[in-house]
């Protein structure tokens, strides 16, 4: 088969884009299995860096912090965000449009502004930096994303099934628990996964609001990188990548199956 010049060029162009997107990640993963301490020469395959990582108590501590913060903030953000989305969907009230828009605004506010403003707030209120501030900050930036995802799910929601439930004798609360929740559950779950990954890899906001004893994993990596990128960091990044990807794929599969 012969391809035209235009076609060859478009294939080449597309390949470049994907290469550019995935090459650095591929190299990062590859070098996490490299025997050499230098990220330049390939000398042989090893799992040493992963073993070493698991013995690094600082890293393990940061991992624990990250998981705790991610779990708690995901749970809270999902609950707050879901209720907000359902409320915005169901009720009409004065100023709804403005409030609705303000829910999404934090998505576009520069993270550094969010970080500094939260730091200023906590300082003002004399709240010591630590787990509490970290979790509060993570909830804050996750909520808008939860609202966006849940509302997308609600857009395809047939309101008459809520009326049907009430018509059959269910109180508004029973209707929410027995009908609304189960029907939008895939959206809620997907939003929770999103909130979890957002929390897990946040650097900028966490940088401002984390205390000395509550460094998250990304912050730990950030500080390690100051002394050069070691294969150990490659290994750690690879692990984070695997965990994040697994969560995203899981969330997508639930979403696809339910739709």
């Amino acid at each position: 088969m012969r391809y035209s010049l235009g076609r060859k060029f478009s294939v080449f162009y597309a390949s470049l884009i994907y290469l550019f997107l995935y090459m650095p990640i591929a190299i990062l993963i590859l070098y996490s299995f490299n025997q050499s301490k230098l990220n330049a020469v390939w000398t042989g395959f090893t799992f040493d860096w992963y073993v070493k990582l698991m013995q690094n108590s600082d890293v393990l501590e940061a991992m624990k912090t990250s998981l705790i913060v991610a779990l708690i903030s995901t749970l809270a953000a999902t609950m707050i965000g879901t209720l907000a989305a359902v409320g915005m969907y169901r009720y009409h009230f004065r100023g709804k449009t403005a409030l609705d828009a303000m829910l999404y605004l934090p998505i576009v506010i520069p993270e550094i502004v969010m970080g500094i403003s939260m730091l200023a707030l906590f300082a003002q209120l004399k709240v010591p930096l630590g787990y509490f501030t970290l979790i509060a900050a993570h909830i804050t930036f996750s909520v808008p994303f939860v609202v966006v995802v849940v509302r997308a799910r609600l857009a395809g929601f047939d309101k008459s099934i809520e009326e049907a439930a009430m018509d059959l004798g269910a109180t508004p609360w029973q209707t929410f628990v027995k009908v609304t929740m189960p029907v939008i559950a895939p959206g809620i779950l997907a939003s929770a996964m999103l909130a979890f990954t957002l929390s897990l890899d946040d650097v900028i906001i966490s940088f401002f609001v984390a205390g000395p004893a509550s460094a998250t994993l990304p912050l730990k990596i950030f500080s390690m990188v100051k002394f050069g990128v070691t294969p150990e960091i490659n290994a750690l990044s690879t692990l984070m990548l695997v965990v994040t990807l697994a969560i995203v794929i899981f969330a997508e599969r639930i979403r696809m199956r339910k739709e």
């Binding site: 047939d158 008459s160 099934i161 009326e163 439930a165």
Partner: peptide
């Protein structure tokens, strides 16, 4: 009780 136009089954 109501039978809805769209049936509104759960």
């Amino acid at each position: 009780n109501t039978v809805f136009q769209s049936y509104a089954l759960f």
